[in-house]
């Protein structure tokens, strides 16, 4: 497996914590407009070459989750904006086109400094 994407969390917004409690992690690159910071987990985005696909491994702070579904616009969002929406629902068809579904059931703890990797 090669690392397709690697980034480090720089901040976690107050509302992002509430989203996480509902099993949703919303990432944005640090360029995101300020009004999104409350809702987002910000990270140092570097545009990736390879698309995220089902079967990839998403690693959050050393805990691994398997990607089960990738929405139609999820890869554009990630590449252009560092924007990634992860749901831990294990669906093969994501509920919304911007999402990536992974296994796990609940979202892991996340804080500034947490390392995020996508491997495939």
């Amino acid at each position: 497996m090669t690392v397709k994407y690697e980034t480090t969390v720089t901040s976690v917004g107050s509302m992002a914590v509430e989203f996480a409690a509902e099993g949703i992690l919303v990432f944005f690159g640090t360029d995101a407009p300020e009004e999104l910071h409350d809702f987002a987990i910000l990270h140092e985005h570097t545009p990736n070459d390879d698309d995220v696909v089902s079967g990839d491994i998403l690693e959050i702070g050393g805990v691994e989750f398997t990607v089960t579904g990738v929405g139609d616009v999820a890869n554009d969002n990630l590449r252009n904006l560092g924007h990634l929406v992860v749901k831990f629902n294990g669906l093969t068809e994501t509920e919304l086109p911007g999402e990536v579904s992974v296994t796990g059931g609940t979202a892991p703890g996340i804080e500034p400094g947490t390392l995020i990797r996508i491997k495939g």
């Binding site: 949703i24 809702f39 616009v73 911007g98 999402e99």
Partner: peptide, 15 residues
Amino acid sequence: IDCGGTARIGVYPMK
């Protein structure tokens, strides 16, 4: 926005 339905879709209406 070019939102796939989770975050931005609600942030601006909320504001």
